[in-house]
Nucleic acid binder design. Structure first.
Lengths: 188, 188
DNA sequence: CCAAACGTTAAAAAGTTTCTTAACATATTA
DNA sequence: TAATATGTTAAGAAACTTTTTAACGTTTGG
């Protein structure tokens, strides 16, 4: 039978994976992804495509948790449904290109940030304009309105830049500007 | 006495500010900043420097909440202590340059992400190497270890790129690569 | 066509975070 | 030095989120 170390090796191997999965979960937590969703992503990243039941067994959690977790990850565009030939169960696969992950995750948020804020600024500035143009308003209030208007106007520059950044990322142009370092030797 | 619209104007003005503050809070929420911390930042952004008591009054919350909220924002490097001459109370000021905000906020997180994950990968790969080199381990396990090793090795490329991105942002080089659009006329 | 499998939704429970009140330590000024 | 102001810490309460158990509808295979 041989392979006397298999049991220990299995344990070490799982432990090694765990270290990285935890680490991924911890860092995703920085961006507001819950720990369990992060763990789920990390696990799928290392284990390849999985069914809900496989996830449940691996993480020791309930199936509905897996279902909602996967759904949340799908919303972030970092997990997709797949089909495993001949299998009845649905499988899911994690985005395994971190550059794509970065792109999907952040551009979605930045796009939203720019859109939401530019919209509010428009609305607010419309109100402020009325105040500024109203002759029955005291100079003090007018000035305060002017100042707020100006601050908002100023911030638009940022949101426009953010949209540019998003575009550069979505087109992949960002990787011309900031090149990806060539991979080095696999010194196993 | 004149300025017959002042009362209404005050209300409109506050409402206009509120719209933008809410919007800022909502979008900061996307990155894992709590709603109240976001509101605090937004308020300080529009109102200028404030004392804890001014914040408390403005947001209708307790002073300890303001204290911890400000502290959290300081951790993100987007709020700083200031001194208001002649005043005893400490004042705080929000980073009012959103480009600086972006820089401070994201580079901190990306730096941490790269550091934490590269460290775990190193640790995990060390374990995996032992398995791969152990002749008492079955080929199946070895292969699995190899595969995990390879995935991890591969992901290092991303973290290195992230560090490059951080550097480009910290040095401001990013704004040569993706220029900030010149501001346009203030068409009040 | 029936029985089992699968995934999701709903409601309840558990856990976590945020907020407030109260107490405390430090600094200021009268 | 005493009294007050200021900011923080600690403990408890409230609110919110996550997780689980249970139930439901749909699909699939015998």
């Amino acid at each position: 039978m041989g392979y006397s170390s298999d049991e220990k090796a299995r344990e070490s191997l799982d432990h090694a994976k765990e270290i990285v999965v935890d680490s991924i979960a911890e860092t995703m937590d920085l961006y507001g992804v819950t720990r369990s969703a992060g763990t789920l992503y990390g696990t799928m990243y290392l284990e390849g495509d999985m069914t809900l039941d496989e996830m449940r067994e691996k993480l020791g959690m309930s199936k509905p948790s897996m279902s909602t977790g996967v759904k949340k990850l799908q919303e972030f565009n970092v997990v997709k449904k797949t089909f495993r030939k001949g299998k009845r169960k649905q499988t899911y696969v994690a985005e395994h290109d971190f550059f794509q992950f970065f792109s999907n995750f952040f551009t979605q948020k930045w796009e939203r940030e720019a859109k939401v804020n530019l919209h509010s600024i428009k609305e607010a500035q419309h109100i402020l304009s009325s105040i500024i143009q109203d002759d029955n308003v005291s100079p003090e209030l007018k000035e305060e309105a002017q100042e707020a208007y100006h601050i908002m106007e100023n911030s638009k520059t940022y949101y426009k830049w953010l949209n540019k950044l998003v575009e550069k990322i979505e087109t992949g142009e960002i990787f011309d500007l900031i090149p990806i370092d060539p991979e080095q030797e696999d010194k196993t």
